[in-house]
Simulated assay, not measured.
Amino acid sequence: MKKKVALLAPAVALGLTTMAGAPAMADHAAGSYSTTLNQVNNSGASGTAWIDVNGTEATVTIETSGLAETFMDNPYPHVQHIHIGAQGTCPTMADDANGDGIVSTPEGQPSYGMIGTTLSLEGSTGPEAGTDVTVAPSGSSFTYERTFELNQETQDALANGTGVVVVHGLDPANQPAAATETMSSLPGAESLPLAATAPALCGPLDMQPAGGADTGVTAAEPAAEESNGMGVALLGGGLLAAAGGAYAVRRRMVADR
């Protein structure tokens, strides 16, 4: 059982951008992909991610620890995605273009690209779910397991070696002053602190040899879900609503659809 945040106000899209679909290619991404999730922005977090692709169906398992734990005394929601279409790498502090001590999401995009798939707990894995903190895993440590239909763009990125898992949301207490004193530069997110939308964990996905490699991650039980579309969407206005106290904590199964 996992805690999650249920907000009473809808999430606000922050810079949603769509991309053209790629030509269909049958089973070209089939196989297993994994990565070690390393800290970004000195978050102190760590994790692993494993993706098994069979036809158009993907089983994703992510384990994390050391992330920001609470927001307003409730579990901190961590929006997570498979980013695609760029260099297939993770940003470093050298990518902090404005020198404020934090690599923002836009500063990281030349490395990891736009969102191909939102790794939500339930419902859509499309771009519309990218801002929905009510379906994001939460707390300092969590295990995420889900099986769903993987869109063509993300399949292409995995096959091309440009898929990257990114988990967002920093603890301002462990960040430079800009984390709280500076607002996010993303359109529509000017009222959110920079920490809320910045990346905390990142890992490029690599295909594993037949038979896979031991990452210590156990594959999820199938629970197929519909998925379509792709885009850029970041942590929604739910955090802003939470600042007003408009949310409640409820318990649910992590892999529940």
Score class of each variant (00 low, 15 high):
Ala30Thr: 15
Ser46Leu: 04
Pro172Trp: 08
Phe148Asn: 01
Gly212Arg: 14
Glu181His: 00
Thr154Leu: 07
His83Lys: 15
Ser184Tyr: 06
Ala6Pro: 00
Pro91Asn: 08
Ala196Tyr: 06
Gly108Asn: 08
Leu186His: 07
Pro176Ile: 15
Ala178Met: 12
Ala6Asn: 06
Thr134Met: 04
Asn98Ser: 07
Lys2Met: 11
Met253Gly: 06
Ala196Met: 10
Val232Ile: 08
Gly44Cys: 03
Gln208Cys: 05
Ala173Gln: 10
Gly188Ala: 09
Gly216Met: 05
Pro176Glu: 13
Ser43Ile: 07
Gly47Ile: 12
Thr59Pro: 01
Thr105Tyr: 11
Pro23Gly: 10
Leu240Lys: 07
Gly236Ala: 07
Val167Pro: 01
Leu8Tyr: 10
Leu170Gln: 04
Leu14Arg: 10
Leu201Arg: 07
Leu7Gly: 01
Thr92Arg: 13
Thr56Gln: 11
Pro137Met: 10
Gly15Ala: 14
Met72Arg: 10
Leu234Ile: 04
Ala49Thr: 14
Ser120Tyr: 01
Asp27Ala: 13
Val5Gly: 02
Ala241Val: 05
Val12Phe: 13
Ser141Glu: 11
Met72Thr: 06
Pro204Ala: 14
Pro193Leu: 12
Gly211Thr: 13
Tyr144His: 14
Ala30His: 10
Gln109Ala: 12
Ser43Gln: 05
Asp214Ala: 15
Asn74Phe: 05
Leu67Phe: 06
Ala223Phe: 10
Ser43Lys: 09
Val79Leu: 09
Val53Ala: 02
Glu226Ile: 15
Asn74Pro: 00
His83Thr: 09
Ala177Arg: 00
Gly161Leu: 13
Gly245Gln: 14
Pro172Arg: 03
Thr48Met: 03
Asp100His: 02
Ala58Lys: 05
Ser65Tyr: 02
Thr89Pro: 00
Ala196Leu: 07
Pro172Phe: 09
Glu225Phe: 09
Thr59Val: 05
Pro199Gln: 12
Ala11Ile: 03
Ala30Trp: 03
Thr143Pro: 00
Ser32Ile: 15
Gly238Gln: 15
Ala189Ile: 11
Val79Pro: 01
Pro204Ile: 15
Asn74Cys: 04
Leu192Val: 03
Gly99Asp: 13
Val249His: 01
Trp50Tyr: 08
Glu57Ala: 11
Thr117Gly: 00
Thr131Met: 07
Ala246Met: 14
Asn98His: 08
Arg252Pro: 01
Ile115Cys: 01
Asp156Arg: 15
Met183Pro: 01
Gly216Phe: 05
Tyr144Leu: 03
Pro209Val: 15
Glu69Met: 04
